[in-house]
């Protein structure tokens, strides 16, 4: 699908959705193929569990199959699918014992009275390339994202990881544009701080050798 024409893909998808709404189930298989990767990926980033994500993907596909004809088209079909996926993923999380979230405010930047940064900021942005495929680094990044409070996490995953637009994320989560931007920014600040602890230390260690 990498080299396909997005405009054509969109037209095909619209037709498939129309067929599904009309109860023509032949379109179900194609829509399932189009969406299952996105459903699984989103669910995995929220639950971090392969079995849960498989269950969620099946549940969402089943909802599309059973309730696709009731989809009213008030918002985009993809927004509807993302919303069902989020709900199903949260149901899974509710049944599991979870680690308490860290307070995001504790990790936001701190300033002095004049509004200048108080802590020493290291620039570790150049030293991350070689570490990206390192297993330990991946775990640190996953863990940092897992620690985000739910409200910020879902915005971060939809916007920065899945690459959806601010408007689309607002539409899926029923949030205003400023609310999406503010949650995204807070999530990035939190994650930056978490990664700074890791990469900053790594850089110091390396330079100290």
């Amino acid at each position: 699908m990498g080299f396909s024409d997005p405009t054509k893909d969109k037209a095909t998808e619209e037709q498939l959705v129309k067929d599904l709404q009309a109860g023509e189930m032949g379109s179900f298989e194609q829509l399932a193929n189009l969406y299952q990767g996105k459903i699984y990926s989103l669910s995995f980033n929220l639950t971090r569990n392969a079995t849960d994500s498989q269950d969620v993907t099946q549940e969402v596909l089943l909802t599309l199959f059973r309730k696709g004809h009731t989809f009213q088209g008030k918002s985009a079909f993809s927004s509807w699918v993302y919303r069902i996926t989020l709900n199903a993923s949260y149901m899974k999380l509710r049944s599991r014992k979870r680690e308490p979230n860290v307070s995001i405010d504790d990790l936001l930047p701190s300033f002095n009275k004049a509004g200048f940064q108080q802590e020493k900021i290291q620039d570790w942005s150049e030293s991350t390339e070689s570490l990206l495929f390192d297993n330990e680094t991946r775990k640190v990044i996953q863990k940092a994202v897992d620690l985000l409070p739910d409200k910020e996490k879902v915005v971060f995953i939809l916007r920065d990881v899945e690459g959806l637009s601010t408007e689309k994320v607002g539409n899926i989560l029923e949030l205003t544009i400023p609310a999406v931007k503010s949650r995204l920014h807070r999530a990035r600040l939190f994650l930056r701080k978490k990664l700074a602890n890791y990469f900053g230390e790594y850089k110091t260690r390396k330079e100290g050798k």
Partner: peptide, 20 residues
């Protein structure tokens, strides 16, 4: 340094989490 690492954070998280 803050801007550079803020941008890197987004990119690193995306590259790590996108490959599910």
């Amino acid at each position: 340094a803050f801007v550079n690492t803020y941008k890197s954070t987004t990119r690193l998280c995306k590259d790590t989490l996108k490959s599910n």
